[in-house]
């Protein structure tokens, strides 16, 4: 959340768009460290279903979340196009399992619209805004909320 004000003050933004749970999302490119092929992870005990486990990223142990499950859209079905988006905020690095990565989206500040007033507070927290691309709507993921492991996003 803390980054948004500054991000939106600049005019041009680059996002990477991807799909999770059948919906289109995007993350600002500056938050993304790398995109990796899905490999098996080490499961963690006593964790909710959206926490798949941990993997070794060049010597660091990073948790992998199933983004679809984290947004309450059901577990990601296994697919050879599945990838892990490694994203970082501050000192925390995490991996997000998504169905597939689509494209790099370059948009103007003005193209980012406020999240429509929807019922679910959790959804409002986890989406910073929406961008409409042709006839689809791309949701800008609020990485801070996804990182907050003490928040149960899936309702």
């Amino acid at each position: 959340m803390l980054d948004t004000a500054e991000q939106i003050s600049d005019s041009q933004f680059e996002f990477i768009t991807f799909s999770a749970g059948g919906q289109n999302f995007c993350l600002e490119i500056t938050q993304i460290r790398e995109i990796r092929r899905w490999t098996t992870v080490t499961a963690l005990p006593h964790t909710p279903p959206d926490v798949l486990g941990v993997m070794n990223l060049r010597g660091a142990v990073i948790p992998i979340f199933d983004l679809s499950a984290r947004f309450g859209l059901g577990k990601t079905t296994e697919n050879e196009r599945n990838v892990v988006i490694v994203a970082a905020s501050g000192d925390t690095t995490i991996g997000l399992l998504v169905e597939s990565v689509s494209e790099i989206l370059s948009v103007d500040k003005d193209a980012i619209q406020e999240t429509p007033d929807i019922k679910s507070d959790m959804t409002k927290l986890s989406i910073l805004g929406v961008i409409s691309v042709e006839d689809t709507m791309v949701r800008v993921v609020n990485l801070e909320t996804v990182l907050a492991t003490d928040l149960q996003l899936a309702v």
Binding site: L44, V54, T92, D150
Partner: peptide
């Protein structure tokens, strides 16, 4: 585990084994 995730009961930390797995 805590730097990127948080404490997990019964687990103190993680390590990386010879095969690169955690």
């Amino acid at each position: 585990l805590e730097s990127n995730y948080g404490a997990i009961q019964g687990v103190s930390a993680a390590t990386i084994l010879g095969d690169g797995k955690i």
